[in-house]
Nucleic acid binder design. Sequence first.
DNA 1: CATGAATGAGACTTCATTCAT
DNA 2: TATGAATGAAGTCTCATTCAT
Lengths: 240, 240, 240, 240
Amino acid sequence: MSAVLPSPARRHPAAPRARPPARTRPARQRRKEARPQELLDAALALFVEKGYAATRADEVARRAGVAKGTLYLYYPSKDELFKAVVRGTLASLIAQGQEVVAQYRGSTSELIAGLLNAWWERVGSTPAAGIHKIMLAEARNFPELAQFYADEVITPAHRLFSTAVQRGIERGEFRALPPQVAAQALMAPLIFMALHRHSLGACRVHGAAAIEPRALLQTHLELVLHGLELHAAARRRGVA
Amino acid sequence: MSAVLPSPARRHPAAPRARPPARTRPARQRRKEARPQELLDAALALFVEKGYAATRADEVARRAGVAKGTLYLYYPSKDELFKAVVRGTLASLIAQGQEVVAQYRGSTSELIAGLLNAWWERVGSTPAAGIHKIMLAEARNFPELAQFYADEVITPAHRLFSTAVQRGIERGEFRALPPQVAAQALMAPLIFMALHRHSLGACRVHGAAAIEPRALLQTHLELVLHGLELHAAARRRGVA
Amino acid sequence: MSAVLPSPARRHPAAPRARPPARTRPARQRRKEARPQELLDAALALFVEKGYAATRADEVARRAGVAKGTLYLYYPSKDELFKAVVRGTLASLIAQGQEVVAQYRGSTSELIAGLLNAWWERVGSTPAAGIHKIMLAEARNFPELAQFYADEVITPAHRLFSTAVQRGIERGEFRALPPQVAAQALMAPLIFMALHRHSLGACRVHGAAAIEPRALLQTHLELVLHGLELHAAARRRGVA
Amino acid sequence: MSAVLPSPARRHPAAPRARPPARTRPARQRRKEARPQELLDAALALFVEKGYAATRADEVARRAGVAKGTLYLYYPSKDELFKAVVRGTLASLIAQGQEVVAQYRGSTSELIAGLLNAWWERVGSTPAAGIHKIMLAEARNFPELAQFYADEVITPAHRLFSTAVQRGIERGEFRALPPQVAAQALMAPLIFMALHRHSLGACRVHGAAAIEPRALLQTHLELVLHGLELHAAARRRGVA
DNA sequence: CATGAATGAGACTTCATTCAT
DNA sequence: TATGAATGAAGTCTCATTCAT
């Protein structure tokens, strides 16, 4: 049961209702195991496209090829559906990233370049990135959703990148910048770019400056790694 | 800090509402000419807080101290109201920035540092930044608004920063990175930070990593200017 | 704001909605002062006829000659509407009864006969009596409504009749029966009768034994006053 | 106390569910013949607690330990289920009462005291009484159910008590009050009390005047038998 | 016999916009 | 100008009943 929105008023012990007409129905497909993922896919696509509030439950259902009521068989409310989407995309990826950092053996610049590239492959360039747009947009209207997102995504992701920067400093590869802040600086342009792909970039607004993701990613890496590294390291990499 | 743009005159030197009632004219008439701006202020605050779709017309009216119908006397619909808000905040600031770039005489690193600082003072740290959050969030649901925003804000702002980077390259201060892309890299963390102030940062979500704006701004400047500048320039600035 | 049902999920900051077509509407009647009572009348009639849960908000509105939304201009939720109905009927009548008991000067048998007759005139034989049916029926499904009803109706009404019996005992007119229990015995058949008028009695069920209210009331009074009074009093009244 | 009707055999001497699993037959088959009664028990409990409309089919099924579809194998619809519950409880008890009256040999006051006590034992204090609450509440929404209830319960029960009063008058024990009306007066407080046990009494509403059943029953008997009897009879009973 | 996934009408409530005053 | 009562489409969630397995 969700804590995000107050449970919707247990609306009513049922007004007397005429029995629904027993007409012929389309054959029901039995796909119990596939349904939850089909619904999550539909929900992800629509949440990303329209946002949380503007996504209608029965549109999610229809896109997954079921009736409105069926959605509620699997997810008891819209906000639980949203949480399931978040868990199935961002939250699980972050956990993987943490493993990578813990076990990495090479240089920290490579680790960070690898993480950012992987992030772009697996998040930034996929619909998953749209989730962040949603939270940015609607956090204030849905405070409990915001808390959920902070706990399951923001905080762990931030920890992930701080840890990587910290490693660079400890190993004498990076200048001693505050790792928390540097982590933000590392992620910001990527997230920013991902955000745009799912909003203004997705509208074919006439004449808006298009962002070319790979180009920005490379430029960004060049800038910030150059900025982070000690000169010796920079020289070794041959960047400058 | 912000020497680049002149500090703007406060639009409302004193809150008109606080004035003692004057006998000669009823308060309603005295405020008649202030109405449009009062409505825009109320609308800006609410749009930023709740987003476009979730802001209710009569809440805007109430906050401005008028009845719902009155709002419609000044702005014929919710989206015209929104456009008026955008014109009165972002669009006019961008025009000022363009003047500054055109007339600047110092080093490009200083120009850029000045622009970014000014942007933070006048946009990033004010409600105006929230407008960008709105567009990010709702562009796809309101294509006409998105087009308007692209034309009046995104495109000119992008041109502004590209021009500045271009200037640095042409004057031999910066390495020859693609100016369009570098412009994005310059702005991204600031915008990113501003976005957060109006969404997750505004909810007091327990435990979410707080972003300290000035720190990020400094770290960012240090990183990217260090990255942009030719070595000679870097050495001259004494950054690393 | 009501405490009976959890506020209905602040359902949603509004999905983007096409502006409603500006077609010609029927002339709006301006009857602000009359509206609340018109709505209460419609609500009372429907609640009594169908019960609380089965009464649909837009049926109340339609019966009062307004659109669904208008109802919510006056009463913020279905349960507040119900409470307003209760306050406007039962609760105010009970207060009147308390005055009568406090100021009565004649014999207690007469007082009680008067109260029961008045109750029948003002409650039992009017739609107000149907409210009790509703609570009986739906108390367990709407616990906070039940609490409201207990506080505003049941408890004061019970106190009213207990006080009257107590008076009879103190003045030596009645035998010393427990006044709380006797009060129940006094009211029960009347309420019972009133209940039936609004349920089985209202359906024209073929062949069900009809209850003739006045006859039952007289028989009841004869029985219970005869039973309550001391013999001397009974002889004086000449009942036996 | 209840010498009039024989105490009924408990329908379920032991809860079948508690039995240890038998190897020879799967539990499902062993319970097959018990299913209808288990469903009726579950339905009675839920109908009484929530009312007819508010009771959900799959809650009945779940409480009986079967799946939703199974319920429909035994009872083709919700209203047939309800009728089966009524037949299994009230209707059969009334038939027994009619036998008792026909064969009784003692005084009518004793017969009536016995009937009322028995009614309280077997109906008023059991869930069966809740059925009456349901009909009171929902008769108008379900006319077909109301007609069924009138035919199978109301009319026969009313005839039962009228016959008893009539007997008292014919035997010179009672004053010549109209028997139909007196019958109502006899039953009303008991039914009233039973109703409350299943509605407001079942909610633990703070401060509502509690009804103590035995006390009301005794007071009621004292009052109405005193009121019904001729003086000679009253004196003989030594009541007052 | 038994299951339980699926259906979809219908409940309550919100809010952009209109228009009589 | 200014008001605010009125409208009604649209959103989320429930549940009696069916039917493929």
